[in-house]
């Protein structure tokens, strides 16, 4: 019972502090690169609004500790300590996911669909993601292709994604177009 009460108090406290408008400012500055509320319209920069909370938390933490490949994010993330990352992840995961508006290649998307089943195991049916498995459906094809190549080449290291080493560039292109084409 005591434990439960404590949990409740912490829960209430966290939600109150989350509601405090003051912290919005630390998320608002991301929009200059990721679009308002993370709905990126530039296709080399990923959509982060509506991304899974655990994944956002993990990635931000890795950037801030130089444990992930990246460019600008390796600098930007260092402005964010654990508490801020917690907030940021919650903030962006609560935004509406706005799918890519950039064109994709229909033929390639069809090719990709044929080999995508294995990806559903982790990324969920239709690539909507959950927990530490990121949403990839409706993400920009350009970004997906880029990041899949990084997993393939081992520049981006992740055990669960090491299966990408077996994929050809053509297959990667097809998968990127397929997942980007899922736009609800």
């Amino acid at each position: 019972m005591k434990k439960y009460l404590l949990f409740l108090m912490v829960f209430v406290f966290f939600n109150l502090s989350f509601a405090a408008d003051g912290e919005k400012r630390i998320a608002a500055v991301c929009a200059g690169c990721h679009g308002t509320n993370g709905a990126s319209v530039g296709d080399s920069i990923p959509i982060i609004g509506g991304q899974s909370e655990d994944y956002l938390k993990k990635v931000m933490k890795e950037y801030s500790e130089d444990k992930r490949v990246g460019s600008v994010m390796l600098k930007v993330a260092k402005g964010y300590d654990d508490k801020r990352i917690e907030y940021i992840a919650k903030y962006f995961s609560k935004q509406k996911w706005v799918s890519s508006n950039k064109p994709f290649d229909k033929k390639l998307a069809e090719e990709g669909e044929k080999i995508a089943v294995i990806c559903f195991d982790c990324h969920g049916k239709n690539g909507k993601g959950m927990d530490e498995y990121p949403r990839i459906a409706g993400q920009h094809a350009f970004y997906l292709k880029q990041v899949l190549k990084e997993y393939k080449d081992g520049i981006n290291k992740n055990d669960e994604m090491s299966l990408l080493k077996e994929y050809s560039d053509e297959q990667i292109e097809a998968l990127a177009n397929y997942f980007s084409s899922i736009r609800q």
Binding site: C33, G35, I45
Partner: peptide, 14 residues
């Protein structure tokens, strides 16, 4: 060079 264009599109959007 790609990020520059994406950045511009996003800041114009914002």
């Amino acid at each position: 060079a790609f990020h520059q264009i994406s950045w511009a599109e996003n800041i114009w959007n914002d």
